[in-house]
Amino acid sequence: MKILVNGKRKDVPEGTSLSAYLEIEGLDPQLVSMELNGRIVEREEWASTGLNEDDELEILFFMGGGL
């Protein structure tokens, strides 16, 4: 099924959870926060939150630099 991740079309298997999606992309869950269809999903709910067709997912990265 097609979803939108950070503005880009992605094809993911039916029933993929947020946790599983991070795994597919090889992203460390500690490095990000995730917003699904405009709402932040709490970290504890990533495993139980499934993606659906046309979902809009934003993966937001911690950026700690500045000096």
Binding site: F61, F62, M63, G64, G65, G66
Partner: peptide
């Protein structure tokens, strides 16, 4: 503001 490598927010 935050920066890392080639990106920022």
């Amino acid at each position: 503001g935050g920066i890392l490598r080639f990106s920022g927010q």
